[in-house]
């Protein structure tokens, strides 16, 4: 790996490392596992950087997809449930920051801080049942039918809720989403 490449990777980490870390942590829970997922995710991002096309999506979305996949793979490989899923079963707090908690992480980057607040607010505006479905899918990696089993709800209801929630989030977050090429 050339020195310039290492610098690029360092910059990628500096910009997105904390988001990737927090996401991995919310899914796997254990600190050692979290670090493994982060290293794994950046390693994969680095290997597949050639397939990443900035015209077709943001770096954030690309990294989040990789991170979620690696984290959920690790949780499954460990034969565990994700931290959020375990918590959800106890109906305690879940993976997304509450509007109150989000203020504990001041971000020097104004744009990022605003995005963070917008995301937290948008999640807060979802009906509780929709938010729950999103959390199970997002942090638990559960499929439609697994969510239905978890919540003891009809499959159709779960599908509708998940879709409605994602559409609401997309509307609410649209100022931060740009159009992509097909």
């Amino acid at each position: 790996m050339a020195a310039g490449d290492e610098r690029a990777l360092g910059e990628l980490y500096d910009r997105h490392g904390s988001t990737v870390y927090a996401l991995a942590r919310a899914i796997v829970g254990e600190r050692a596992d979290t670090e493994e997922v982060v290293a794994d995710a950046f390693g994969q991002a680095w290997r597949t950087a050639g397939q990443f096309d900035p015209a077709r999506g943001s770096v954030t979305a690309w990294l989040a997809t990789i991170t979620r996949t690696r984290a959920l793979d690790l949780v499954r490989a460990r034969g565990r449930r994700s931290k959020v899923l375990a918590r959800a079963a106890q109906e305690s707090d879940a993976g997304f920051a509450t509007p109150l908690a989000s203020s504990d992480a001041p971000d020097r980057d104004v744009e990022r801080q605003e995005t963070r607040q917008l995301v937290t607010r948008s999640l807060g505006e979802l009906p509780e049942a929709q938010r729950r479905v999103i959390e199970l899918a997002y942090f638990g990696g559960l499929s439609h039918s697994e969510i239905a089993a978890e919540l003891k709800e009809p499959l159709g209801t779960v599908k509708t809720r998940l879709r409605a929630a994602m559409e609401k989030l997309r509307d609410a977050l649209s100022p931060r989403i740009r159009q992509v090429e097909p």
């Binding site: 904390s18 988001t19 870390y21 943001s58 954030t60 989040a64 993976g95 997304f96 989403i177």
Partner: peptide, 14 residues
Amino acid sequence: REVSGLLARGVAHA
């Protein structure tokens, strides 16, 4: 996917 990416920003800070 962009929504999913942005949701990562709403995760409890660590």
